[in-house]
């Protein structure tokens, strides 16, 4: 009776933000992600050079003050290409995570609320989707429906669905027997309403953390697909495509591969740190152990 541990307190939002920025991995991840996002946004209004304009005289230039990241074999500025390519990477990842959440979360919540054979059938179907290696199947899908940014998005999105379905279902299942959910049922609220009012807000933090991790995986997957020529098509630059173009000239112009590669690594690292930090901040159990 004495000293009952207080489960799952929601701290006031102001202190949550302060805590978040006191968390080192969250802060680092946040800064990196914000920089990448700013870079993508900036590319809409300004890039150092116009990448549709090929200047053959400037081809294969090593990094210099004029071209900090050098130029490629068509004389395009690599920094500008990375900036524009980030648009593509982020857009693909955002939409793919969006598809995963929009389909997966309702499915997971439905499975948890309905239970019985619906739950069983949905989750076994989930297992089947899970059983395919995501990138390989994405390659298959884009190979069948033709390469392109849209097909890449759909292919990556499909494999995000079971991830979110599982996380949502697990979270929802642990909430359904709670007394406040019982009280809501005694107040005559239906399953849909309870899911919207009580379940979703309480699993939102878990989904958010999973979201940042899937986002990083999405960027990787997009890079992989466009490396194979199955993602965004030229002249639209993309990080994976740039890597592919650079690999034959690795010996002569390593900077052509290094900078897009770094862009991928830094973005994924930033997002993973952000996800890690978010989990630490949002999960009260981990927070207390610190």
């Amino acid at each position: 009776m004495s000293e009952v541990p207080v489960p799952h307190e929601a701290p006031p939002p102001a202190s949550l933000l302060r805590q978040a920025f006191a968390n080192r991995s969250f802060l680092t991840g946040f800064v990196i992600t914000a920089l990448i996002a700013a870079m993508a946004l900036a590319s809409f209004v300004w890039t150092p050079f116009d990448i549709t304009h090929l200047i053959v005289a400037d081809r294969m230039k090593a990094p210099s003050w004029q071209h900090p990241f050098g130029t490629d074999h068509f004389g395009r500025d690599i920094l500008s290409m990375i900036m524009i390519g980030s648009r593509n990477s982020i857009a693909v990842a955002v939409v793919a995570v969006g598809i995963g959440m929009a389909v997966g979360v309702p499915l997971g919540c439905w499975a948890a609320a309905r239970g019985g054979w619906v739950d069983e059938a949905l989750m076994r179907f989930n297992d089947v989707v899970f059983a395919f290696p995501a990138l390989l199947s994405a390659v298959m899908i884009t190979a069948i429906f033709g390469p392109g940014a849209v097909n890449a998005i759909v292919a990556i999105g499909i494999f995000n669905v079971p991830v979110f379905a599982r996380v949502a279902r697990a979270g929802a299942l642990s909430l359904w027997p709670r007394e406040y959910v019982l009280a809501a049922r005694a107040a005559g609220k239906g399953k849909v309403l309870i899911t919207l009012e009580h379940i979703l807000p309480n699993i939102a933090s878990m989904l958010l953390v999973q979201g940042t991790i899937q986002f990083a995986l999405g960027i990787l997957a997009e890079a992989g697909l466009s490396y194979l020529g199955l993602g965004a098509q030229p002249p639209m630059p993309s990080w994976g495509r740039m890597l592919f173009d650079a690999q034959t000239r690795m010996m002569v112009a390593p900077y052509q591969a290094i900078f897009p590669g770094l862009a991928i690594v830094v973005t994924v690292l930033g997002l993973n740190l952000l996800g890690d930090g978010l989990r630490d901040v949002l999960d009260p159990r981990l927070r207390r152990e610190r």
Binding site: E9, A10, E179, L182, A183, A186, A187, E197, P201
Partner: peptide, 17 residues
Amino acid sequence: RRKMQVVFQDPYGSFDP
């Protein structure tokens, strides 16, 4: 349901935080 309501044991677990 309007005619019957419930009070639970755990004063910590019976509210959505």
